[in-house]
């Protein structure tokens, strides 16, 4: 196996994917039109990073993942994973990557879970000792112990998803792509999956690209987030930067000793009063410390807390402002690294 010494493990440069869609329009006539699922996408992911990839339905997330696995060829642009062009060397790359498609399963539907794992053992030619070690680890951390002899069709969605994640990791992939791994899961299952992914990334240094439209996944797992809409990248950077980008405001909640008229303080305004408790909005980019100091100096402050802006709202605003794909390049959205 050749070791890849380039810094970026995933390299995407100006990638596009255009689908030709043929629709029946009348008895004999067929209309052709094109769907631009991904448009001038550029990003790179260094080895060992865990990146969140978010966007609404139809944004192009799955299309991106499919191109990264090689089961879909880009219409334009350059794409490398571990130095390999995925669509040209799909099979060779498959031995180095793991994929979980949330809505599909790689498991053998009618057979006990363990049979699928034995098959992975053969399919990826995993050395016996390594296979047993990885299986034991996944079984323990993903709590699959009691499920190995259960036919996959009898597993709950959450159990099946954990089963699928284990299946994707038995061959020690260097990168794991997860396409909506928490979709449809209950809170307990979501927490298990997230905890596992966090450990995987921290302890094994596995590069993770996580697609989701559940922002909590991102908030709990990824420092870096990429936002895509209508196939176009909208934001790429720290999750905290997203707050500022959305020109959101943070909220300072103060509890005073007693009921008082609205607090008068520079660079913040009171948005709500409820007895001795007051809510103050201030720019998300600004530090809360001087503000707190000023209030504490002038008012009988008992307690306080800072609330981050609702990230859902930030992103919704971002989408609303996005240029529609028919009018490209109208309003510039900052895409940086």
């Amino acid at each position: 196996m050749t070791q890849d010494f380039t810094e970026n493990f995933i390299d995407v440069e100006g990638v596009e994917k255009v689908f030709d869609v043929r629709r029946r329009a009348g008895l004999l006539r067929r209309e052709r039109h094109q769907v631009r699922a991904v448009d001038s996408l550029t990003f790179s992911v260094p080895r060992g990073e865990m990146v969140g990839y978010i966007g609404p339905n139809g944004a192009g997330k799955s299309t991106t993942i499919k191109m990264l696995t090689g089961i879909l060829t880009p219409s334009a642009g350059r794409l490398r994973v571990a130095g390999i062009e995925p669509s040209r060397e799909r099979t060779r790359l498959a031995r180095r990557i793991g994929v979980v498609f949330g809505q599909r399963t790689t498991l053998w539907w009618d057979l006990p879970l363990i049979d699928s794992y034995r098959l992975m053992h053969r399919m990826y030619r995993i050395p016996d000792a390594r296979y047993r070690e990885n299986l034991d680890r996944c079984v323990e951390l993903l709590e699959l112990g009691g499920l190995l002899e259960t036919p996959v069709r009898q597993l709950s969605l959450g159990q099946r998803m954990r089963g699928d994640i284990a299946a994707a990791l038995l061959h020690d992939p260097e990168v794991l792509y997860l396409d909506e791994p928490t979709i449809g899961l209950d809170i307990v299952s979501k927490a298990k999956v997230r905890g596992f992914l966090r450990d995987l990334n921290a302890e094994r240094g596995t590069t993770v690209l996580l697609t989701t439209h559940d922002l909590t996944d991102i908030e709990q797992l990824c420092r870096r987030v990429m936002v895509i809409d209508h196939g176009r990248p909208m934001y790429d950077g720290e999750l905290s930067g997203l707050h500022a980008f959305g020109d959101g405001e943070r909220t300072l909640v103060v509890d005073l000793e007693r009921e008082l008229p609205p607090v008068q303080v520079e660079s913040a305004r009171v948005v709500k009063v409820e007895g001795p408790r007051q809510w103050l909005a201030f720019p998300a980019a600004q530090s809360a410390a001087p503000l707190v100091a000023r209030i504490a100096a002038a008012y009988p402050l008992v307690d306080l807390s800072v609330r981050e802006p609702d990230i859902e709202a930030v992103i919704a605003r971002m989408y609303a402002r996005a240029p529609s794909p028919e009018r490209p390049g109208e309003a510039g959205a900052p895409v940086g690294r």
């Binding site: 089961i71 498959a94 031995r95 599909r104 790689t106 399919m123 990826y124």
Partner: peptide
Amino acid sequence: NGDIAVDLYRPV
């Protein structure tokens, strides 16, 4: 249903 894509990416 598109599951065939999953079959395709495996090394078989």
